[in-house]
């Protein structure tokens, strides 16, 4: 599997929370190569094989942040609000695709200096920015309806040290790691019982994982999400670096034994890793999967990311590979005890 190609392909098909069907078809195709899969009631893509032994659930979220259309002005400018944790500061002059009856290209308005507030020190809020579709109002209303979503146009790029930039690697990098893990398992003829969940609505609170987690009978889950990588301006408790390995989560919500096993296994197998210490809940799907139905042991692996929730999210392909390998080793070795 070409990680870069898979990542860019998944990212290009991004849909916002509640509109995961934009991504679901593509994700379903990729997952079906490994196991029977379907789309559930909330839009999550769910797969399950008929293997044996301890039943593992691998999870990464399908949805992305974006914008939701709240109004259509006479001259084809769209009023918008955020869908998920979209960062208003990075929006001006970015390009978007509005997912109406057909795809409509637009530019997010940038307020000219003579109209800027506070000498341009404050970013325009969601009440001030619009999408410029270049259509007249009537034409815009024919194609676009309030509630339609918009996603960023992405400028993918390969950077130094096997890092890549683009929109929507949160959490397509996680999906990519899960798919790569399945490939490694297949190469090793692993016949463990597996479920895979590409969950809907993580960015808006985790409903997809909560619902799908209720149906899934897995004993243990491993969620893969992205987390913050260190830059010059991050707080001192952000310690992970891009390219230095998968982040093994420790949190009261997560199974301490699984976290410790993952760490020991990474050491043993020489898989690059870093620790992510979260003294509270994790803010990821792992929180939902741990307590869904009768509860299960949950673990969390995170892929370090810079510029999260911007159109230039940056990750290392090496970290995706490390995450996939550690998951695969964990499953093949039942936690590493028999390795």
């Amino acid at each position: 599997m070409d990680l870069c190609q898979t990542l860019f392909g998944l990212a290009e098909a991004s849909g916002t929370s509640g509109q995961e069907y934009i991504t679901a078809g593509y994700a379903l195709d990729l997952l079906s190569k490994f196991m029977p899969a379907h789309v559930d009631a909330l839009g999550s893509v769910v797969g399950e094989n008929d293997g044996e032994g301890c039943h593992y659930l691998l999870d990464a979220h399908l949805d992305s942040i974006g914008l939701v259309v709240t109004g259509i002005e006479e001259n084809g400018f769209l009023r918008v609000d955020k869908c998920g944790g979209t960062d208003a500061r990075v929006l001006p002059a970015h390009e978007v695709i509005v997912h109406g009856k057909e795809k409509v290209y637009g530019v997010i308005t940038s307020i000219p200096p003579h109209l800027a507030r506070d000498e341009g020190k404050k970013a325009a809020g969601f009440d001030e920015i619009m999408i410029d579709t270049g259509l007249d109002g009537d034409k815009a209303k024919e194609i676009i309806r309030v509630g339609d979503r918009a996603t960023f146009v992405s400028y993918y790029g390969k950077m130094l040290n096997n890092t890549v930039r683009g929109a929507y690697f949160d959490d397509k990098a996680g999906m990519c790691a899960v798919l790569r893990c399945l490939e490694i398992l297949k190469e090793n003829n692993c016949n463990k019982k597996l479920s895979v969940l590409f969950s809907a609505q993580e960015e808006t609170g985790g409903s997809g994982a909560a619902a799908a987690g209720f149906r899934c009978e897995a004993d243990k889950s491993i969620s893969v999400d992205v987390s913050f990588a260190k830059t010059s301006d991050t707080p001192k408790d952000i310690t992970a670096s891009l390219g230095k390995g998968t982040m093994i989560g420790f949190s009261p919500v997560l199974s301490y034994s699984m976290s410790c096993e993952l760490k020991a296994l990474a050491e043993k197998k020489n898989i690059p890793y870093q620790l992510e210490i979260m003294p509270d809940s994790t803010g990821t799907n792992a929180d939902n999967l741990a307590v869904a139905a009768g509860g299960r042991k949950a673990a969390l692996l995170s892929i370090p990311m810079k510029n999260m929730h911007t159109p230039v999210e940056t990750v290392s392909l090496d970290d995706i590979e490390a995450t996939a390998r550690l998951m695969a080793e964990y499953i093949m070795n039942d936690g590493g005890l028999e390795a």
């Binding site: 944790g85 970013a123 930039r165 913050f228 830059t231 991050t234 952000i238 810079k306 999260m308 911007t310």
Partner: peptide, 19 residues
């Protein structure tokens, strides 16, 4: 390359609208 920004999640509440 990219001109990055501190993620909104890590930005203090009273600074979330500051460029």
């Amino acid at each position: 390359g990219v001109i990055g920004v501190l993620p909104i999640h890590l930005t203090p509440k009273d600074k979330k609208q500051d460029l």
